[in-house]
């Protein structure tokens, strides 16, 4: 069964009396363990698609099944719960809470999941360790480098063991060497069986993925498979919960 199934999804906005068709009748399936890049120029609808997949937004028409559940008609509170459980976000601008330590940032999704404090701490520590930042976990975001901040964000995205890791231009604010490290981390996560969706406009970044979707004018212009999606390596014990 596919992890993500979009059927005839449309998303329209009202903008100054004009209707903008951000997505027109898009259908798409993504299986568990896939590594997908979504590409497209700005205004193509790729951000809208990402927001819909990430349950930050709901479609005007069409249905969206995530992990077998129809989420297209859910209310705000249910969507919040789905985001918390199923989606791990990684943003271009990291979006860490400035006044909280790295550790607290990573703990945040677990707080919203209602986990007891002891368990929360344990899992947050494991997630921080998995991105190699144990020695910096008590630092505030402004005391960390860009690459370190993005690694904290990735730890935060993974801490709740979500179905999908959704990254929006994850290397956009990083130099090429640090960007490369982050892409290496994504490759590692993909090898461990995580489902990755990366929204980018950089070919070099997209080429890390096994499948590239190109969006233009609210439609999927092309869907290119770049070799077999990785089968999860059962032999490797998952580092993350």
């Amino acid at each position: 069964m596919s992890l993500i199934r979009l059927a005839s999804i449309s998303r329209r906005y009202q903008m100054g009396g004009e209707t903008v068709h951000a997505l027109r009748d898009v259908s798409l399936t993504i299986a568990r363990g896939e590594y997908v890049a979504i590409m497209g120029p700005s205004g193509s609808g790729k951000s809208t698609l990402m927001n819909l997949i990430g349950c930050l937004d709901t479609p005007t028409s069409g249905t969206y099944h995530l992990n077998g559940t129809d989420v297209s008609g859910m209310n705000d509170s249910e969507l919040a719960a789905v985001r918390n459980r199923e989606i791990g976000f990684v943003f271009q601008t990291f979006n860490l809470l400035a006044r909280s330590s790295a550790l607290h940032n990573v703990e945040l999704p677990l707080i919203y999941a209602g986990q007891p404090a002891a368990q929360r701490r344990e899992r947050a520590l494991a997630a921080i360790a998995s991105v190699g930042l144990t020695d910096r976990m008590h630092h505030k975001p402004n005391e960390l480098s860009g690459g370190q901040r993005q690694r904290v964000a990735i730890a935060r995205a993974l801490v709740n063991a979500p179905s999908i890791l959704l990254a929006d231009e994850p290397t956009g604010n990083l130099d090429s060497r640090t960007g490369g490290e982050i892409m290496g981390l994504f490759a590692e996560l993909s090898r461990r069986g995580h489902t990755l969706i990366i929204v980018t406009h950089e070919e070099a970044v997209a080429r890390h993925a096994r499948r590239i979707l190109r969006i233009r004018d609210g439609l999927i212009a092309s869907d290119e498979a770049r070799g077999e999606p990785n089968a999860p390596l059962q032999s490797l014990p998952p580092v993350l919960p």
Binding site: L56, S77, A80, R83, I87, N95, L108, P109, R156
Partner: peptide
């Protein structure tokens, strides 16, 4: 922005 981040991470209204 902080509110947006918190909502993305699963904070309800």
């Amino acid at each position: 922005r902080e509110i947006g981040i918190r909502k993305a991470l699963g904070a309800r209204r």
